[in-house]
């Protein structure tokens, strides 16, 4: 029993998670219509892996990420962190969960408060979780800035988001996500607003961070090639249903589901025949 747990307990587990959005019952239509965004999703993410969730817009991939960081509640199903159910956490337990599960958002122009300096933004997780004092926090922020490639950290400390480029802003968002030393990070299309030459550098950063801190990532993307570059395992999601899960290599080399095949065929490539 204990041995099995040691080997098998995934860091994050979703069991039969369903999410329905219902339009409010108004007084003319009593029933109210509902849209099923996620249908019976089950997946398990192992420690230290980068798990890719690939899907097109409207597939429900972002909803999974938001459920995992507790920005939304599933209609049905169970979420587990390190084997412990984490569906309806409150107070201390929720604080504890949030210090272990962090998120990197899609648009770095939207996810940083324009009125806060870089330091204030990165400090926030430390402040709200009451970790350290003014001096140690300051050191930690500068150290983290340098980890995410914004060095020297002192130089960025008092800057404001509008003084940084898109790539640099996303690095700030990464710094905010890793400063608490979380176990699990949800990265929701972190490069979809970036140029290819900048995006690949951010991918490299995520790989470096994984190696250095042994963090686990859920990488949400619409780009199969990016998932292949970054991820150990991939799940393909379509219309709220996971249609295929497997190692990144296998899913791309030997897709089983018709939708995955279609997705792979549609990738533009450098074939100069026509």
């Amino acid at each position: 029993m204990t041995e099995e747990q040691n080997i098998q307990t995934p860091i994050i587990e979703l069991n039969g998670v369903t999410k329905e959005y219902s339009s409010k019952k108004s007084f003319l239509s009593k029933a109210g219509t509902s849209i099923i965004a996620l249908n019976n999703i089950s997946l398990a993410i192992q420690k230290k892996e980068i798990f890719g969730l690939v899907g097109q817009s409207g597939s429900g991939k972002t909803t999974i990420g938001r459920i995992l960081v507790k920005l939304e509640q599933p209609t049905k199903g169970i979420i587990k962190l390190n084997g412990k159910p984490a569906n309806s956490l409150k107070g201390k337990a929720l604080e504890n969960y949030r210090s272990k599960v962090q998120m990197i958002f899609q648009d770095p122009y939207q996810s940083l408060n324009p009125h806060l300096s870089i330091a204030e933004t990165i400090l926030e997780p430390l402040v709200v979780n009451k970790i350290g004092n003014a001096v140690t926090r300051r050191e930690k922020v500068i150290e983290t800035l340098e980890i995410v490639g914004l060095s020297p950290g002192q130089e960025f400390y008092h800057r404001y988001p509008h003084q940084l480029s898109g790539g640099q802003r996303q690095r700030v968002a990464v710094a905010r996500a890793i400063i608490l030393d979380p176990e699990f990070i949800v990265a929701d299309e972190p490069t979809s607003m970036m140029d290819a030459t900048i995006a690949i550098q951010l991918f490299q950063l995520l790989l470096d961070i994984r190696k250095k801190f042994k963090m686990t990532f859920l990488f949400i993307t619409h780009n199969l090639a990016a998932a292949r570059f970054l991820c150990d395992r991939i799940a393909v999601i379509h219309n709220g249903v996971i249609v295929e899960t497997g190692s990144a290599e296998m899913v791309i080399k030997d897709p089983q589901h018709a939708y995955t095949k279609k997705l792979i065929l549609a990738q533009p490539g450098f074939n100069f025949k026509n």
Partner: peptide, 21 residues
């Protein structure tokens, strides 16, 4: 807006979100 959500994910209280963000 994402920066409010980011702050919530970081664990900020409602009071802090209202007055700081």
């Amino acid at each position: 807006r994402p920066f409010i959500e980011a702050s919530r994910v970081a664990g900020a209280s409602n009071f802090r979100i209202i007055f700081k963000h």
